[in-house]
Simulated scan of single mutants.
Amino acid sequence: MAEREKGTSIRRALKVLSAFSLEESFLGVSEIAKKLGLPRSSVHWLLQVLQDEGYVCQDPKSGKYRLSVKLFHLGAIAANTMNINYVAPPIMERLRDLTEETVNLYVLDGFDRVCIEQAEGIHLVRQVVRLGQKIPSYCGAAGKVLVAWQPEDFVDRLISHTRLKPLTKNTISDVTLFKEELAKIRRQGYAVSFGERDIEVVAVAAPVFDEEGKILASLSASGPVSRFEITPQVIEAIMNAASEISYQLGYSKDLEAAMSGGKD
């Protein structure tokens, strides 16, 4: 069989598997042929191959087919690797190599953010955050990203709890300005900060979404204000890296649709 014909057969077999759904978990040959627009004979042959290889089973009473436990096993393997601590590090390291600055991954813990993964910058003088360290979430690019996609009631409770206490002269401590900043972050899909938590540090961050389109983490690059320049290229690199992590975690919707969050 020619390579192109092999490729066509593989694609058709995958389409047959994709024809099954929660609503249609049992399908007959004719039903699959109609859904896919394929000849009934071709579908029958593909199902026989898939059954021989253990990917589908035929119900002896109805004659219809269903997906087998082998696919469940493969799904479990895939789910095991769809873990942010597994997916993120190589992407973070590439981003670190590109920016030459420290790249951190943060998640929310109450009203704080916690660093769960890190790729240290290449310079001797660099921004240092310890793994597991808690930092207020209302200041700094990474924290603002995490807060920007939270429900409004969470934001109000955060403001009430922290009073947006200034950590530097650049911390956004006005409630109206803070909420405007969050809306801006959702619109543009990223956040920047200039000395909001540490007066000598600048940062840029973008959201990481889970398979349901909910924010899971924020990915940031940060460095000394004297060296790290947040250019459009750096912003694009951060957003692309965050998008890649999201995709590998199962997020497949259009990123911009999630970024709007339905809040504006």
Rank of each mutant, 00 (worst) to 15 (best):
S42Y: 03
K34C: 01
L50K: 06
L22R: 14
L47S: 12
A76G: 08
F20V: 05
V87N: 09
I77K: 12
R66V: 10
G75V: 02
P89M: 09
I84G: 12
A79Q: 12
G28W: 00
A33C: 08
N85S: 08
S25A: 09
V43C: 02
A76N: 10
F72D: 14
P89G: 12
G63V: 08
K35Q: 04
P60H: 13
K15E: 02
A13F: 03
L71E: 05
E23Q: 15
D52K: 04
Y65M: 01
K15F: 01
M82E: 11
L27R: 05
K64L: 03
I32A: 00
K61W: 10
H44L: 07
K70G: 00
W45A: 06
M82T: 10
S41R: 13
L46Q: 07
I32G: 03
S30R: 15
H44G: 06
A76P: 02
Q51D: 09
H73Y: 09
L38A: 13
E23C: 08
S25G: 00
S25H: 09
K70S: 15
A13C: 13
V16L: 13
P89K: 10
V69E: 14
Q58H: 05
A19Y: 03
L50S: 06
G28R: 00
P60T: 11
V56L: 05
P60L: 12
S25T: 07
G75M: 11
T81E: 13
T81G: 00
I32Y: 04
N80C: 14
